Structure formats: C-alpha cells, structure tokens
Computed example of a mutant assay.
Amino acid sequence: MRPMTRRTALATLGAAALCPLAAAATERRYVLDKAASSVGFRFFVNGIAQAGTMPVSAADILIDPDRPAASRVDVTLDVTGARTALPLATQAMIGPDVLHAARFPVIRFSSTSIRLSAEGRLSGGATVTGALTLRGLTLPITLNANVFRARGSGPNDLSTLTVRLDGAISRAAFGASGFPGFVGDAVELDITAVIRSAT
C-alpha cells in the first residue's frame, strides 16, 4: 500500500471537491409549456365521477440525465383558477369548506426523492415522493411517474419531454373535508406536463 504523501492527499481532496461540480453540471433546467400542460383531477359526487383542472402558476424543474434519481421538481398551482364542469361544484370546491382559495390561494408540490423503475428509468414503475402543501398543511405524497421524449426525436434529444404523473390523495387529510355526505374523500390526480430545456 502506497503511503499518502502531502502531494497525494492534496490531489485526492482536489478530486473530491470537483466531483459534485461535475455531477451538478449534468443537470438541465426545464421550463413548463403551460399551453401544452394540464393538471387534472377527478372526484366523486354521489358516486358519479366529476373532472376538473387547475392551472400551474410556477414550475422549477431540474432533470439530471446521468443521475435521473437526482432530478428535482417544484410546482405551484393556482387554486383560484380551479374549475370543474359544474359551476356550483366549482364554487363549493374553492370555497371555505374545501380548498378555501381566499385564504390558501396556492398548492405546492416539492419533490424529496425519486425511485427509478427496475430498469433504472423515469418510467415503467418510477415514483416521485414529495411534500404537498394544501390549505397550509404539508404532508408527504407519492405519485407514479413516466417521462417521455418527443415523438420522432433521437435517443439523446432531451430538449422536449412529457412528464406524466398520477396518484390519489385524501382531501380530509388536508382539512378539505367539506360536504362529506355528497363528495368522496379520494381525489385522483392526472397530470401532464410538457417541459422544454432552458439551456
């Protein structure tokens, strides 16, 4: 075993210091194409499915092609813009008994970890776990994730990606439990986000 001299020690420390910078350099920042993206949700009123949408007001997305599990996402939704097909249901949803948009105008999701699929990909069984803040209460949630390249693009073309997320939350867990006799507790999420590389 070679002894570690001052010279080799300095070289080792220098290499260790450069490693995080090299890894960080592979990260790519993406911007959301709002016109091509949608945050959909589904809930049940008297057992009948109702659908709605909520606009995205901000998104900060970093994807690391070399280390996909190190990718990050931070998304803010505009609660005041939430809509359903039924005007009365929309008013009840953004009112004080459910989302209380006047007091809590945004919903935020910030990822904390990503688990890749068995093939090591951001699809086919990948999940994203993060902190969801709704009505001022923050709880962990896990969503199924799939990331796709643009149709017809080459295998190394990551300039445009489509991110699909789906899962479900309990509205009662966040205190949005109004009208329990009519509206089911589970809210299903179906999110499509088209993102384009900012670099």
Results as ranks from 00 to 15, higher is better:
V98M: 13
L161Q: 06
A145Y: 00
T12D: 00
L21V: 15
G175S: 04
T192V: 12
T133W: 00
R28P: 03
V56F: 06
A82P: 00
I114D: 00
A92P: 02
A58H: 10
R29T: 15
A82W: 00
Q91K: 14
L18F: 07
L116A: 08
G81P: 01
R42F: 05
T112C: 04
D190L: 12
A150P: 02
E119K: 15
R83H: 08
A102H: 04
Q91V: 07
C19S: 11
L86H: 09
L189T: 06
T162P: 00
P65I: 11
D185W: 02
R121Q: 15
E119Q: 15
S110Y: 00
A102F: 01
T142S: 15
G124W: 09
G47N: 13
G47R: 10
T8R: 15
D60S: 14
G178K: 07
P105H: 07
S113R: 15
G181D: 11
G130R: 06
M54F: 04
A126Q: 10
R42M: 10
L116Q: 08
T160E: 13
L132D: 03
P55I: 11
F179M: 12
T26N: 13
S111N: 07
G47E: 13
V56K: 05
T192K: 11
G154E: 08
A118G: 15
A49N: 06
T53W: 10
L99A: 05
D97M: 14
Y30H: 04
E119L: 14
E27N: 14
T53D: 13
A70M: 09
L132I: 01
R28D: 03
G178C: 09
A118P: 04
S177G: 14
N46M: 11
Q50Y: 06
A92D: 13
E188M: 06
S123R: 12
R6C: 09
L132S: 02
G95C: 07
V73C: 00
G167R: 14
A92M: 14
L13M: 10
Q50D: 01
Y30K: 04
T133K: 00
R103G: 07
A59Y: 08
F109A: 06
K34M: 03
V163H: 01
A92V: 15
P20L: 14
V194M: 03
R67C: 02
N156M: 08
N156Q: 13
T127W: 01
L161K: 06
S159L: 08
G154C: 06
R171Y: 02
G167C: 11
P180Y: 07
S153H: 05
L132M: 09
T53L: 11
T26D: 13
T12G: 12
D78H: 04
S170M: 07
V163F: 05
L32M: 12
D60W: 04
F182A: 14
V147A: 03
A70K: 07
P105M: 05
R29L: 12
R149S: 02
R6E: 09
A193V: 02
A92N: 12
V39P: 02
G181Y: 04
V194T: 15
A172M: 10
V147Y: 05
A69Y: 03
N146Y: 00
Q91A: 14
L143Y: 02
I114A: 03
D157Y: 05
I48H: 11
C19R: 08
R42Y: 04
